[in-house]
Amino acid sequence: MVQAVKNSWATFKSIFTGMGITGRHLVGPTVTLQYPEERATLPKNARARLFVNMDDCIGCTLCAKACPVNCIDIETVPTTADVDLGKTSTGNPKRFWLTRFNIDMAKCMYCDLCVHPCPTNCIYMEQEYEYSEYDRSNLLYKFSQLSPVEVDDVKAKAEAEAIQKQKEKEEKARQKAEEARLKKEQEAAEKARAADDGTGAVPAADAAKAAGTAAPDAADAARVAGTAAKPAPGSPSKQDDTQNPSKGEA
């Protein structure tokens, strides 16, 4: 009985203590912000949306490699010899056209890992946090400054240069092979002469060896030229921007 009274008293007391505390809060100040009218000032460190300053981007793709979710998609085209893209504000020379620089903010997990490897500090997190969209595809941010026409143009140029280079290479390889063949013929002629003399057996063997190595050399050169030429015709098919090729996801 005494225990019951004590318990009841303790219950009432704790209830009144609690009501006292909530009562103090009832008249106390509020801590919330009335959001659309009042906005919290984010600290300058805050990470909310990825942004790329394309003027400074050199197309090194380090950010794309650092991204754990593959939300950055970069396609670069090497510049042709007649174009100088200039330098970034940090002094790095720009050697690539950035035909595609897409960031899918719907995929981004705000981990900050892409920001640190950037050599020119051109990719960073903004404080803008109100960028929701009704259509998910609007969250695919395209940073490339080139218009589709320009992209085609640049690609064509690069392709032409690549073909040109390849041609030069092929030419070189052909010349080399030609030289080797001439040399071989010459040596064969010498050998025949030596055989006629009956004295030049040792140099003839040497010549045969030299001819044998020269031929694979030529084949090698041709192969190198072939691979260099390959990507150029293949690249136009990759131009579809909305279909984000997720190459690293295998």
Binding site: L42, P43, N45, A46, R47, M109, Y110, C111, D112, L113, H116, M125
Partner: peptide, 21 residues
């Protein structure tokens, strides 16, 4: 946390042998 790391919930603040920022 936000002031130092930039995020409020998922920080990615600790790096190997250091802090990210």
């Amino acid at each position: 946390f936000e002031k130092n790391s930039g995020a409020r919930l998922l920080y990615n603040y600790f790096a190997v042998a250091g802090l990210m920022r």
